[in-house]
Design a protein around this nucleic acid. Structure first.
Length: 550
RNA sequence: GGAGCCGUAGUUCAGUUUGGUUAGAACGCCUGACUGUCACUCAGGAGGUCGCGAGUUCGAGUCUCGUCGGUUCCGCCA
C-alpha cells in the first residue's frame, strides 16, 4: 500500500495501524517504483485514496509470523491466532482436500455414508470409554464411541453392503504425539469381502489421495508381510522400510549355541534367543566415513540398557575379515565365522547383538534399528513405503490380568486353519491362532487397521469365552450383536484409516496437533476453552451425581 | 502409574554447573526523528510474583522437597 503524507487524513489513519488490524483500503493498483520479487505482490501496490479501520487489534500475546517463536502452550490457548499462520492454515486446507477425495472415491465405488450414534453403549473391551451420564435414566451412562465398530457390523447385517463414514472416535487413554483423545477415522466396511477386496479398495483410495494431493503415483498392490515375518526381521509390527544401511534382524542362537559365553548360555537356558542386526559402513553428509567409536558404542549401550537389557554386544569387521569385539575371546573361530556368514559381514561393518526372551530381544532390536536410523540419518525421506502387515495373532496373554485379551479387537475372525484351536485350553495353541487381521503401515506409522469379522454367533461366543467372558456376560455386553448374527448376517470385513496421521504424513509433519483445528494437550485439556471444567451443583443434581471428596 | 526435558519482561531465551551488589539480550510495545518503506533506520523509554508453596542459608532465579502446567517416551491405546 502506498499512502503519502499529502493525503493528510489517510496518512494520519495509516500511522495508527498495528499488527493484526482489520482494514478496508480502496485505491488504484499501480506498478511499484521499487520492485520486490521476494513477496508475491511485489511488483504492484495500491495507491490508497480511502482507508477504513474495520477493527483494531490489541497487542497479540505472540507475534503471528510464519517462523513462530511462541511455545505450543501459548499457541493452543490463542489457537485462533495460531491458525492465522499460513503453515497451519495450509494443513487444514490439505485436510479438507483429503475429505473431498474420500467422499468422492467411496461414492464412486458404491459406498454409502451413514452416520452412527455418538451416544452409545459402553463396551468394556479395549480402551477406556468417555462416559456421558443420562439425566432420564439416573445412574446410567452412555459412552462415546471408541469406533463405530459394532454399528457398522450391524449395518452389514442390515444389508447396507458398502458403508463408509468419516467419524470421530474417542478413547480415554494417555496421549502421544500421534494420539489425541478424540481423533478422526475413515471407517469402511464391506459385505462379502475378503482380505484382498479390502486391500484393493484401500489401495485405490490411497492412490487417489497421493495422486490428487501430492501428484505422486504410488505403486500398488502394496507389499505384504506377515506379522511373524515383521517381528522376526524388523522387531516391530510397523517396520519403517525407508531405513537404509541396516540389515534385517538375524537370530544367531544356533550359531553361538556351542560358545562358552555366559550371557549367551543364560539366554539359551531360559528359552531365550541371541539376535543381532548389522550396520553397514556409512558416511556423514560430507562423504566422510562415520567411525563406530567407543563413545558411539557407549551411547548405544545406554540405549539398550534403558530398554532393560544388560548390555550390547558388538563385532566390528576389520580388514581381512577379522571380528574385533570384547566378546570374541569367548567365541571360537568357527563360531565367529558362522556369525560373519549369517550377516554376510564385510570390512567396515558392525554387528550388534543382544540376548534375552525372544519377543523382548526382537522388539529391542527393532527400536535399536530406528534409533540408529535417526542418529545417523539413514532414512530416505523421499520415499513412501506402504506395507500391509497380515496374520496377526488373535489373542495375547496378559500376564498381569492372567487372561487372554484381543490383539486387534474381539470381532476378528480367526483364519480357517486355526478355528479348531478355539476349543483348545492350551495357552500355546491359543496364542498360535492367527487372524484375518491386517494393519496398513506407512513409513513406520500404522495408518489403517482392519479385519474380516466374525459373522457367526457361535464363533464369537468361543472368542469371548477364551477371553474369560461367560455367555451371560457376553449377552449383557454384546447381546445385540450376537442376536443380529442370528438373522442371516453376511460375511463381512472392513478397515479404518487414521485420518489425522495420514494428513500429518501428507503435510510432512510428525505431530497430529498441527493438522487438527482445535487439538488438546497431552493431559487431554483444551487450553483455549479450558475444558474439561467443573459444572454447577444443579447440573450434577439433575444427573443424580455426587462428587467424591478427595 | 513411571522416566526425561522445559517453566525468568508481552514473546523467545541467557543467567542455575560453583548461592552473593541494582536479574540481562533480542524481538515486540510506547515516545520522537525520517517523503519510498517492504526484517526500515536512528535516538530515547516503559516493562519482572524468576510457575506456585514450603525448607536449607546471613543471603535462593540458582540448592532440597512438594505441587501445578507444557512436552517427549514407557506402561496404556480391542
Amino acid at each position: 500500500m502506498k499512502v503519502t503524507p499529502d493525503k493528510k487524513d489517510i496518512y494520519e489513519k495509516a500511522e495508527k495501524l498495528g499488527n493484526e488490524f482489520v482494514i478496508s483500503a480502496t485505491g488504484t493498483v499501480i506498478k511499484r517504483e521499487s520492485i520486490n520479487k521476494n513477496i508475491p505482490t511485489g511488483e504492484i501496490e495500491l495507491d490508497v485514496n480511502e482507508l477504513e479501520i474495520l477493527n483494531e487489534s490489541e497487542i497479540t500475546p505472540f507475534v503471528v509470523e510464519e517462523d513462530v517463536k511462541a511455545t505450543e502452550e501459548l499457541r493452543l490457548k490463542y489457537r485462533y491466532l495460531d491458525l492465522r499462520r499460513k503453515s497451519i492454515y495450509d494443513n487444514l486446507i490439505l485436510r479438507n482436500k483429503v475429505y473431498q477425495v474420500a467422499h468422492k472415491y467411496y461414492e464412486k465405488n458404491g459406498f454409502t455414508e451413514i452416520e452412527t450414534p455418538i451416544l452409545m453403549k459402553s463396551t468394556p473391551e479395549g480402551a477406556r470409554d468417555y462416559l456421558v451420564p443420562s439425566r432420564v435414566k439416573k445412574g446410567k451412562f452412555y459412552a462415546l464411541p471408541q469406533s463405530p465398530q459394532t454399528f457398522k457390523q450391524i449395518l452389514m447385517v442390515a444389508g447396507i453392503d458398502r458403508y463408509v463414514q468419516i467419524c470421530k472416535c474417542f478413547r480415554d487413554e494417555d496421549l502421544r504425539a500421534d494420539r489425541q483423545p478424540e481423533f478422526t477415522q475413515i471407517d469402511v466396511e464391506m459385505s462379502f469381502a475378503d482380505q484382498n477386496d479390502i486391500f484393493r479398495s484401500s489401495e485405490g483410495f490411497l492412490k487417489q489421495i497421493w495422486k490428487g494431493i501430492l501428484g505422486i503415483n504410488i505403486k500398488s498392490p502394496f507389499r505384504l508381510m506377515t506379522y511373524d515375518e515383521a517381528i522376526s526381521k524388523y522387531g516391530s509390527d510397523k517396520p519403517d522400510l525407508r531405513i537404509n544401511y541396516m540389515s534385517e534382524i538375524s537370530d544367531i542362537s544356533d550359531e553361538v549355541a556351542g560358545s562358552e559365553f555366559r550371557v549367551f548360555q543364560d539366554a539359551l537356558n531360559t528359552n531365550g534367543i541371541i539376535a543381532g542386526i548389522k550396520l553397514e559402513s556409512i558416511n556423514d553428509e560430507d562423504g566422510k566415513k562415520i567411525e563406530i567409536t567407543r563413545k558411539v558404542i557407549d551411547a548405544l549401550t545406554d540405549f539398550v540398557k534403558k530398554l532393560g537389557f544388560g548390555g550390547l554386544g558388538y563385532f566390528k569387521v576389520e580388514e581381512e575379515g577379522n571380528l574385533k569385539s570384547p566378546i570374541s575371546k569367548f567365541l571360537s573361530d568357527e563360531i565367529q565365522n558362522s556369525i560373519k556368514k549369517k550377516f554376510n559381514a564385510k570390512e567396515g561393518e558392525t554387528i550388534f547383538v543382544i540376548s534375552g526372551s525372544r519377543m523382548d530381544t526382537l522388539q529391542a532390536l527393532g527400536q535399536f534399528r530406528s534409533h540408529i536410523a535417526d542418529k545417523f540419518n539413514l532414512i530416505d525421506e523421499s520415499k513412501y513405503e506402504f506395507l500391509w502387515i497380515t496374520d496377526f495373532p488373535l489373542f495375547k496373554y496378559d500376564e498381569e490380568e492372567m487372561k487372554f485379551v484381543g490383539e486387534h479387537h474381539v470381532f476378528t475372525m480367526p483364519k480357517d486353519e486355526f478355528i479348531k484351536n478355539l476349543d483348545s485350553d492350551k495357552r500355546e495353541e491359543i496364542e498360535n491362532i492367527r487372524a484375518h487381521c491386517y494393519d496398513l503401515v506407512l513409513n513406520g506409522n500404522e495408518i489403517a487397521s482392519g479385519s474380516i469379522r466374525i459373522h457367526k454367533s457361535e464363533i464369537q461366543r468361543k472368542v469371548f469365552k477364551i477371553m474369560g467372558m461367560s455367555d451371560e456376560e457376553a449377552d449383557q455386553k454384546f447381546g445385540f450383536l450376537l442376536e443380529a448374527f442370528r438373522y442371516g448376517a453376511p460375511p463381512h470385513g472392513g478397515i479404518a484409516f487414521g485420518f489425522d496421521r495420514i494428513v500429518a504424513i501428507l503435510c510432512g509433519i510428525k505431530y497430529i496437533k498441527d493438522v487438527i483445528a482445535f487439538p488438546k494437550t497431552v493431559s487431554a485439556v483444551s487450553l483455549m476453552d479450558d475444558s474439561p471444567s467443573p459444572v454447577s451443583k444443579q447440573q450434577l443434581d439433575e444427573l443424580g451425581i455426587t462428587l467424591k471428596k478427595e
